[in-house]
Amino acid sequence: MSKVLKFVLNGMPVKVVAEPQETLLQVLREKLSLTSPKCGCNHGDCGSCTVILNGKAVKSCMIIALTVEGKSVVTVDGLGTDGKLHPVQQAFHEYGAPQCGYCTPGMVMAATAFLNENPNPSYDEVKDALAGNLCRCGGYQKYVDAVMAVAKGEFGPIPKGSDVDV
């Protein structure tokens, strides 16, 4: 029995018909044609579907879409301002962290949500924050180094999130 789902996606209100059994990932990819959250396992293991839900990084394949009613979802498409990359994106790019790039949107979201809450993390805290995101190419070192560089301010201040209410 499908229902109308209203939530805020990257700062814009959206309205979409969703089935009870559909995940947030499915709705984003298949109904809203937003393919930046990737489907690597559909089982909550790989983290490539990570998005920010009400300020917290979550795996969108583990969320029933209808439960995000009235909430705010940010994908990697919602980052960056005035044509400029978000510091996390810039750092990942300059550090050469992505290889095939399939895990990257999820990594960006996990790292961004983490830095919003922990602007001065230790190296081990960053590793812990990204532990739910698998990179089969083996770019972990560069991802962690890049997040540390952002925390040290190498890529400028982190802009405030674009969360708005419905």
């Binding site: 990084a57 583990m62 969320i63 924050a129 995101n133």
Partner: peptide, 9 residues
């Protein structure tokens, strides 16, 4: 338990 992204929900 699990990782941050799971514990968040």
């Amino acid at each position: 338990t699990a990782g941050h992204t799971v514990r968040n929900v």
